[in-house]
Write a protein that binds this DNA or RNA. Structure first.
Lengths: 212, 212
DNA sequence: TTTTGCATTAACAAAATTGTTAGACAATTC
DNA sequence: GAATTGTCTAACAATTTTGTTAATGCAAAA
């Protein structure tokens, strides 16, 4: 064996494929380019994965799995009081997306291009997500009963949270040149943005003195 | 001439290309498929537009122009009091995206794939957008001074508005199977979602009795 | 009527991309 | 050490996709 670790080339190809598919999409990706990135001949790629499609499926599987984790991050820590729980959910979801900034675009594109592909993902998580919704909704209703927060539909709340957290990264390259100094320092901007998202959600669910 | 209107085939091709590029992206689009959609031979397509790239540029130009309109919709009506102005901005931006639901994904993908392409767009709107920001920020500061609303950074506010409005359509196909009856009726859901976005932004900018 | 020029088609050419195969080579097993 | 197995390469084949061209028709101008 050339390579110290067994399966090293296979792993190199997978890593290169992940990069390529996440940035270029299925259609934009080139098997030759993946092979080049991985430092192997392109025959090698076909040797290990047979076809571009099969290689892609491997990446999709892994990424969909990562994706479903993010849905759970958003649920927050059930041991906390509901208000802190939601805020914690916003923060951990934001951090999750920050660590996987290319994931949302990939998933969104994939779902449009190959909806049938995604049925698998949906079936895998739909009922779990549904159960979690119901559980958190009960908590919210209880807290609302006690006047601790506004009564809201948890699904709407989740959409808002995902919207603000995910869009931050989706649109970063588009916004950056339009926002002047605000986005010049990425780290600092992300910190501010996270705080802004928390604040926005917090105000959405806090009991208001004067109803709208 | 076969066709009544001059340039009919050219227009047919453009319409087909718009459909194809918006849904499939540059890499996914096929010139033969565009020609088929348009009901012309694919040689015809090359006759009118020479290359796939040139045809694509035509679509990009038009779509980027549409895009910049949406940035102005979000500014609201300057003749209104600032609070109504912002709410009106949220609503008209939502409506705009609802009428161009494929646009955001197209722009986001394009900006990642061909950043240099987008410099043109940015240069075209950066200073106009900048001026509008400053104008609205002044209004906000004045209103905040009078205790009519919270003092907020208008750029952050815009990001929040765009996030929630755009993400609704970006993620619709992903969310729909996870949300049960909430999203079953698209029209009704969009109405609810628009109201939710308005409510969320409104609460973000309303003066609170007890600060956070 | 002849000419000019655009629109159109079918057939073809070129390029890019994916996928295959026969065989070399090294390591492992028997 | 011979046979076997899995890894790897180079060259090639097939397919898909884009782009070209030469020939034809047709409408308006001269």
């Amino acid at each position: 064996m050339e390579n110290k670790e067994k399966g090293s080339k296979e792993k190199q190809i997978l890593a290169a494929a992940e990069q390529e598919f996440l940035t270029m999409g299925y259609d934009g990706a080139r098997t030759t380019s993946i092979a080049r990135r991985a430092g192997v001949t392109h025959a090698m790629l076909h040797y290990y994965f047979r076809t571009k499609e099969q290689l892609f499926e491997r990446i999709v599987d892994e990424k969909f799995s990562t994706m479903s984790h993010s849905m759970f991050a958003i649920m927050g820590d059930p041991s906390l009081p509901v208000l802190e729980r939601i805020i914690g959910g916003v923060e951990s979801h934001f951090d999750f997306v920050a660590e996987n900034p290319l994931l949302p675009r990939f998933v969104i594109n994939e779902i449009v291009a190959r909806p049938e592909h995604c049925d698998i993902l949906h079936k895998r998580i739909a009922h779990v997500v549904g159960a979690l919704y119901r559980e958190l909704q009960l908590e919210i209703d209880r807290a609302a009963e006690n006047g601790e927060m506004e009564r809201v539909d948890v699904r709407m709340l989740f959409i808002s949270i995902m919207s603000m957290n995910i869009f931050t990264f989706l649109a970063y390259p588009f916004m950056e040149p339009l926002m002047g100094e605000l986005m010049a320092d990425r780290e600092q901007f992300l910190k501010k943005r996270k705080a802004e998202n928390v604040e926005t959600i917090l105000r959405r669910i806090k009991k208001q003195k004067d109803a709208v």
